[in-house]
Design a protein around this nucleic acid. Structure first.
Lengths: 245, 245
DNA sequence: GGGGAGAGATGCCGC
DNA sequence: GCGGCATTTCTCCCC
């Protein structure tokens, strides 16, 4: 596609506040929180209706460069190149693209006000434990979930069968050093603020790394194997259709 | 665009292992590490040459759904809908899309083997401190950077003017509770493994949150205000062109 | 592949 | 806006 045709097409789409998709050969410079440069190669550009810009290489999960919402975009041809200058003055972030070849440009007004529903999060784990406290220990009595105000952001806390205050930190995945550090911070905070000498700490997660297990034991905490709940599980080896939700 | 035309176009592009961009009205289901459902709306799909799939809503930075590399994609028309079934058997992840309307489909073979160069990272901060140790303290003598083997992943460590072992943890942005916890873990690890009683901990970051500052003081650590270096900084209020790199 | 930590992390919620 | 934290975090590097 000719550069000046692409230029017009992109300018019109920007004016109409459409989602724009561009594939082209380009180099990319960025300056803002950090700085970056990417030599010439084929990439995909996605400009969204809120001004977000994503630059994607032909492989990999993450955008190689990006600009956040409310970014302004300016497109023009100069010295035989299609230039895209994107700037977010509020964030002091700037991104420049020099496009030497445009493979295609497409744009459309997209209408979408739906929010994704996700199940199986850490929050769902905590909820499950509130409903089935025996997942932690026989005799465990949870008091509150997600106590944000007084003692920090604690997933679940309550009393064990011996009426000892017990803090439960949930992790969806493997429990690591960070998770133990976090639990430790909570336990100390509660000890201090309540003036109690003995507070128990429990890490609820599917598995733990060896080093984390060691640190957990050093601090007298306990690991309970719990996995996040899956409410919508419908797939298995023999099943090909998802069915309705 | 008619669904069966889109079907063919996508199938051909998949066979040719091209990058594919689709805009359409759809609902999305996901099952894997967690589970999710997204009601009907207009979205953009990006299928990459390594099998990566990204689903983007018309606003926002992050994909609303995604599948990692090596995902297989199957497209067909059924009951008047264009169905995209993506599965990653190795990861036991599955994503289903029901498309009721296709706005456009584009595809291309993209060639890109360049890697992005980023400056101003935490690593660059540590490097800067190695070169200018007075940024930390007068008399600070750094020994090593990124010591991974013996004492963990410590950014910089060395001796202060009184020959006391000193650990420096760098953060690009505001120092928070997590950062202080991390520093604390390192200091204790070194104390234990070296059998030393006094090890100093310094957090090098631009600013700190109040709670983190308090925790830092509680533990006898110190904050030094350091910002990540920017090697390519060329922008300012009065400058409109980026110039060459 | 596991483990540990950074990221231009982002996004969410609460204050 | 800051603060604290989860994320289908992802990515990188080392062992």
């Amino acid at each position: 596609m000719k550069l000046d045709v692409a230029e017009l097409k992109i300018q019109e789409a920007l004016e109409k506040n459409q989602v724009i998709l561009i594939a082209g050969r380009c180099s990319v410079s960025y300056s803002g929180r950090a700085e970056s440069f990417l030599e010439e190669g084929d990439r995909v550009f996605l400009i969204k209706q809120d001004g977000t810009l994503l630059v994607h290489q032909p492989t990999g999960n993450n955008p190689v460069n990006y600009m956040k919402e409310k970014t302004k975009h300016d497109v023009f041809v100069e010295d035989g190149k299609l230039i895209l200058k994107s700037s977010n003055l509020a964030l002091k972030e700037y991104l420049d693209v020099e496009i030497t070849k445009v493979h295609f440009v497409e744009s459309a007004n997209l209408d979408d006000n739906k929010k994704i529903l996700i199940k199986g999060t850490e929050f769902d784990m905590a909820e499950m434990i509130m409903e089935k406290p025996e997942l932690i220990e026989r005799g465990f009595k949870p008091l509150n979930r997600e106590e944000h105000t007084k003692y920090g952001f604690i997933d679940v806390f309550g009393y064990d069968k011996d009426k000892c205050l017990t803090i439960v930190e949930c992790k969806r995945y493997i429990g690591d050093l960070k998770a133990v550090s976090q639990l430790r911070r909570y336990v100390e905070k509660i000890k201090k603020s309540k003036g109690i000498d003995k507070v128990r700490g429990i890490l609820a997660c599917p598995t733990m790394s060896e080093n984390a297990k060691k640190m957990l034991e050093d601090w007298g905490f306990k690991h309970v194997s719990v996995s996040p709940p899956k409410y919508l599980e419908r797939y298995n080896k023999n099943q090909k259709n998802l069915g309705e939700y």
